[in-house]
Design a protein around this nucleic acid. Structure first.
Lengths: 215, 215
DNA sequence: GACGCAATACTCCCAATGGAGTAATTTTCA
DNA sequence: TGAAAATTACTCCATTGGGAGTATTGCGTC
């Protein structure tokens, strides 16, 4: 059902699950004027591609094995602000949605959203709207989401160590694995507790999980 | 590429993400003789359907909003042992794969698996093999996965305390909250570590989460 | 009423974690 | 190239957690 007087809209998908990409292919193919330009299962490949190329819409998973979507979105929007970025995620935590929108995303879609809902969001985002998929919309007020929220910014090493802690490894094991002193692990651990504003590593892990900083 | 002298293989998909279902539709449509019979985004709907109907293959997500796949698989296999159940999941935790296989699943696929890998697994499962997707296979030895694994049986109090620990509360806080001695909390904590066969409470929490013992 | 089990509470001892600093070296990037 | 940030490593001290054991009370149930 192509409308000849409107140009095609190119879409790029970033998600570490090939099956999810297959799913979005279906959704995109059912959308008017939408053409899938490329897809990626890693943040790095996507970044390399975006150095040279562009797209009209990027569907961006926020939890990727080699990077976090919030950061990715921020960087992309700095270089190519005209691109419409729609975050896709499992998480309906208020703070992470906030973070994503404040990083310049044009919308936030849950992976539990129906294809029709996704297409409607894409269409509205193209028209300049900031969009939330239905379930997110029913949970949060878009206006209220514009208050500032602080997700701690972790360094690579800190994220790496937090992930190991979250897997149940002790400082000594982590030190051995990373060829550093247990005392250094202790330092990172302390920094993590500070950044998450808690004195309990289990709480830090929980927050990190919510914010999508794990895995 | 249908082969007329072989009958069609009916597939049912259970996953709470419509996009993932769309993806599996693509994968199934590219498979020889595979026909998608139905799909569900909730455990309950699936169970109701399976009371009256059957299928050759069930692709079963293990994390569902209203149930856990391990239990679902066990129940399904009791009623209809001929059905080939392939678990699909994000988790590559040894213990959960073990648990799934011991609940009668015919295989375990990661959501990060490539479509070709998934089709190959389906084909081999149809031939009677117990299959693991490529990445799982490289991590674990199938034989080793057949050692018995058990979900620990927790008492009410233990589950209650584990939940509080998982929320990041310390023994002292828990004691205060439950009007018991911190030493009693310590005893329960020790019992939990024993039952989960670990010396690290984070690992106990992770296992409990996987087994659906939390919240 | 005897038995099993859950829940309670304690002992001693040692290892691990958390709090608060200081500081050198290496990487990153403007 | 120079400044800022990240990574490394340490000190001292207090609190918490983990290992191993013992023991009492109370509640179902067979």
């Amino acid at each position: 059902m192509l409308n000849n007087d409107q140009k095609l809209v190119s879409v790029v998908i970033v998600d570490d699950h090939p099956v999810v990409i297959e799913g979005f292919k279906n959704v995109v193919n059912n959308g008017e004027q939408l053409v899938l330009k490329n897809w990626f299962t890693s943040a790095l490949d996507f970044q390399v591609f975006m150095e040279e190329e562009t797209a009209d819409i990027v569907l961006l998973d926020i939890t990727l094995p080699d990077g976090n979507g919030i950061q990715l979105c921020r960087e992309l929007k700095q270089k190519q602000p005209q691109i419409i970025v729609l975050a896709i995620s499992n998480l309906s935590e208020r703070s992470i949605i906030q973070q994503m929108l404040q990083s310049g995303a044009n919308g936030y879609l849950l992976k539990t959203a129906e294809p029709a809902d996704i297409l409607s969001c894409i269409k509205r985002a193209l028209a300049g709207e900031i969009v939330l998929s239905r379930e997110v919309n029913s949970l949060f007020d878009l206006k209220a989401l514009n208050e500032p929220a602080e997700i701690p910014e972790l360094t690579k090493r800190e994220r790496q160590i937090l992930n190991l802690i979250a897997k149940g490894k002790k400082s000594a094991q982590i030190a051995e694995e990373l060829f550093i002193s247990p005392l250094t692990v202790k330092t990172h651990r302390a920094t993590l507790l500070q950044k998450f504003e808690t004195g309990n590593i289990v709480i830090a892990i929980n927050k990190a999980r919510i914010y999508g900083l794990l895995e």
